[in-house]
């Protein structure tokens, strides 16, 4: 009981600290995790798919833009990036590169 109250207190504090609650962050989590079916959980691909958890965000963002314009060759990413805005792609890169 005591422990529960304590947890409740901590949670309340956490909730207050985090207000206002964020739709957008959740949306990025869901959108970004959809990429993991190819790039692996947290971007830690084990096979032929590129991993990106240890790469530089600026570089990856640049690559994604180049897939969109056709400047960079791709087998499949050119078709996928067109489903997102540049802001969404940037946020997804940040999501993955922030993972340790």
């Amino acid at each position: 009981m005591k422990k529960r109250l304590l947890t409740a207190g901590v949670c309340l504090a956490a909730t207050l600290l985090m207000a206002p609650a964020a739709q957008s962050a959740d949306a990025i989590t869901v959108a970004a995790d959809a990429c993991a079916g190819c790039h692996g959980t947290d971007g830690r691909s084990l096979g032929a798919m590129p991993a990106f958890h240890e790469k530089k965000p600026a570089e990856l963002k640049q690559i994604l833009r180049e897939y969109k314009t056709g400047k960079r060759e791709a087998t499949i990413m050119d078709r996928i990036v067109k489903g997102y805005s540049d802001e969404q792609l940037d946020a997804m890169v940040d999501y993955y590169t922030a993972k340790k």
Binding site: A22, A91, D94
Partner: peptide, 16 residues
């Protein structure tokens, strides 16, 4: 915080 800053949604934090 960096992640959310880049998102442009000030103070936004995932509930996850």
């Amino acid at each position: 915080r960096t992640f959310n800053g880049l998102l442009g949604a000030a103070g936004a934090i995932s509930t996850f």
